[in-house]
C-alpha cells in the first residue's frame, strides 16, 4: 500500500513539475487550483484506474497476457486525444488541424497514472487512496513549489544555481520530505501491527 501511495505521489509530482515549469509555455502566472479541479483529478484517476483494474485483472491476467497491458494504455491515450480533438472541432468550432499541444499533455499523465494505480492496487479503497495521493502530488508540484521559488527569489544565490538548478534542488528536497513522511507512516503502521 505504501508503495502504491508513494509511487502515485512521485508520478504526479514528477510529471506535473515539468508540465508546470518546463513544458507549458502558457503558464506564466501563479497556478490556480480550485477544489473543483482537485475533485475532477481524483474522480478521473479513480474511474480510469477501475477501468484498468477490471480489464487487466479480469481479461489479461487470467489469459496470461499481462504483457499486452501497454496496448490497453495505447488505446486509451489515442482515444482520449481523438475525443479531445472532436470536442474542440464540434463543440468549440475550432478550425485548427489536429496537433498535440503541451497544454494537452496532462491527459496522458492521467491515463498513465491510472495504469500505475491499477498495477499496484488490490482493492477499491486502495484506488480511492491513490486518487487522494494524486491530488496531493498535484498540489505539491505546483502551489508548494511555486511558493518556495517565490521566496527563493529574495535570496542572493550563486549565479550557477539560479533558475533550473535551484528549482530541481527544491523539488528534490520536497520529494525527500515526502520520503520521510512515508517512512514515518510505514514505521507507524509496522509498530501498530506488532
Amino acid at each position: 500500500m505504501l508503495q502504491l501511495t508513494s509511487t502515485v505521489f512521485y508520478a504526479v509530482f514528477a510529471l506535473n513539475i515539468f508540465l508546470n515549469w518546463g513544458a507549458l509555455s502558457s503558464k506564466s502566472r501563479r497556478p490556480q487550483h480550485s477544489l473543483k479541479s482537485c475533485l475532477v483529478l481524483a474522480l478521473l484517476t479513480a474511474a480510469l484506474s477501475l477501468v484498468f483494474l477490471l480489464s487487466g485483472r479480469l481479461l489479461l491476467e487470467p489469459a496470461g497476457l499481462l504483457t499486452l497491458t501497454p496496448l490497453l494504455l495505447g488505446v486509451l491515450i489515442a482515444s482520449a486525444y481523438a475525443l479531445h480533438y472532436v470536442y474542440l472541432k464540434k463543440i468549440k468550432k475550432s478550425s485548427q488541424p489536429f496537433r498535440v499541444q503541451p497544454a494537452d499533455l496532462p491527459l496522458s499523465l492521467l491515463i498513465y497514472l491510472a495504469s500505475l494505480v491499477s498495477y499496484h492496487a488490490t482493492a477499491a479503497w486502495a484506488v480511492a487512496l491513490s486518487a487522494v495521493m494524486a491530488v496531493l502530488g498535484y498540489f505539491a508540484a505546483s502551489v508548494l513549489i511555486f511558493d518556495i521559488m517565490e521566496r527563493m527569489e529574495l535570496n542572493a544565490l550563486p549565479a550557477a544555481v539560479r533558475g533550473r538548478p535551484v528549482l530541481l534542488m527544491t523539488i528534490g528536497l520536497v520529494a525527500m520530505a515526502f520520503s520521510g513522511l512515508n517512512g514515518l507512516l510505514a514505521y507507524g503502521l509496522i509498530s501498530g501491527i506488532q
Binding site: L15, A23, T69, P70, L73, G74, I77, Y81, R99, V100, Q101, P102, D104, L105, L107, S108, L109, I111, Y112, S115, L116, Y119
Partner: peptide
C-alpha cells in the same frame, strides 16, 4: 515501462 506510453504525446508536442 508504462511511462513509455506517455512519450508519444510528449514527443509529438
Amino acid at each position: 515501462v508504462f511511462m513509455f506510453m506517455v512519450l508519444p504525446p510528449v514527443l509529438s508536442a
